[in-house]
C-alpha cells in the first residue's frame, strides 16, 4: 500500500490488546504512527505495545476501562502527556455477551451499553477538546453490520452499535467546523476471539465465508479502511458508516 502519510502522528486505540484493535495498532505502527494502546487487559496491551515498538514508533500501554470517567481521564492524561497531541482516536473496545431480549439482565444491558456506546462518548469527550484546539483530528469508531441488520440474541449489541452510528453522525456535525472528522467502520463477522467463543471451528468457518466474496475476514482486513479514514485522502469524508464486510450487507 502507498504510504498514508501518517508518519509522526499519534493515535489512541481502545480495545487495542486483541482482535481488530490489535490489528489496527500494528497497522498504524507500520505507518510510523505513535500509539497509546488502551485496554482493560493490561498485560496483553503491554505485549501489543511492544510489538508496535518493533516498527520503531513510540507505543505505550494504558490500562483503561472505557466505561469509567476516571479511567478515560487517565488515558487522556497519559496519551496527551506522552505525545502532546492526539491526531487519531480509534474506538474499538466492545463486548458481546449473547442473550435474547427476554433473558438480558439489567446488569448485562448496562455493561454492553456503557462499554460499547458510553465508551465512545467518554473517549470522544476526552480527546475532542484538544482536536478542536489543533483544528484537526480523526475519530474512527468500530461499529458493526449488526447495527443495520439486527441479530438474534444481540439486541443490546445492535442497540449499542447502531447507537455508535447515530452518535458519530451527530458528532460529525458538531466537530466538522473545527476540522475534525468522525466516521464509523462496520465489519460483519471477523475471525477473532469474540465469535470463536461460542462456535465450533467448523461452524465458525461456514459462518465466516457466507458472503458474496466467499472470503473469511481476518482482523487485518479492516486495517486498510481505518488507515484510509485516518489519512489526508479521506479529509472530505465525515459522518459515514463504512461497510467492510465482503458484501454481506449492502446499504
Amino acid at each position: 500500500m502507498t504510504p498514508m502519510r501518517l508518519k509522526g502522528k499519534s493515535a489512541v486505540v481502545t480495545g487495542g490488546a486483541q482482535g481488530i484493535g490489535r490489528a489496527i495498532v500494528l497497522g498504524l505502527a507500520r505507518e510510523a504512527t505513535n500509539i497509546a494502546v488502551a485496554d482493560l487487559q493490561r498485560d496483553k496491551a503491554e505485549e501489543v505495545a511492544a510489538e508496535a515498538r518493533n516498527f520503531g514508533v513510540t507505543a505505550i500501554a494504558v490500562q483503561t476501562d472505557v466505561a469509567s470517567e476516571e479511567s478515560v481521564a487517565n488515558l487522556a492524561r497519559q496519551a496527551l502527556g506522552r505525545f502532546e497531541r492526539v491526531d487519531i482516536l480509534v474506538n474499538d473496545a466492545g463486548i458481546f455477551p449473547q442473550a435474547r431480549v427476554t433473558e438480558i439482565t439489567e446488569e448485562i444491558w448496562d455493561r454492553v451499553l456503557d462499554v460499547n456506546l458510553g465508551g465512545n462518548f467518554l473517549c470522544c469527550r476526552a480527546f475532542v477538546p484538544s482536536m478542536r484546539a489543533q483544528k484537526s483530528g480523526r475519530i474512527i469508531s468500530i461499529a458493526s453490520g449488526i447495527a443495520h441488520t439486527g441479530a438474534v440474541a444481540g439486541a443490546h449489541y445492535a442497540a449499542s452499535k447502531a447507537g455508535i452510528v447515530g452518535f458519530i453522525k451527530a458528532l460529525a456535525r458538531e466537530v466538522g467546523p473545527d476540522g475534525v472528522t468522525a466516521n464509523a467502520v462496520c465489519p460483519n463477522i471477523i475471525d477473532t476471539e469474540l465469535p470463536r467463543s461460542h462456535r465450533t471451528p467448523a461452524e465458525l468457518h461456514e459462518r465466516l465465508v457466507r458472503n458474496p466474496l466467499g472470503y473469511a475476514m481476518q482482523p487485518e482486513d479492516l486495517v486498510g479502511t481505518v488507515l484510509f479514514l485516518a489519512s489526508d485522502a479521506a479529509s472530505y469524508i465525515t459522518g459515514q458508516a463504512v461497510n467492510v464486510n465482503c458484501g454481506t450487507v449492502m446499504i
Binding site: 431480549v101 451499553l113 456506546l117 465512545n120 462518548f121 449488526i146 447495527a147 443495520h148 441488520t149 439486527g150 441479530a151 438474534v152 444481540g154 439486541a155 443490546h156 449489541y157 445492535a158 442497540a159 449499542s160 452499535k161 447502531a162 447507537g163 455508535i164 452510528v165 447515530g166 452518535f167 453522525k169 451527530a170
Partner: peptide, 13 residues
Amino acid sequence: SAAKAGVIGFSKS
C-alpha cells in the same frame, strides 16, 4: 442521536 439510532438497531434484533 445515539439513543434513537440504538432504538432502531434494537428493534431489528
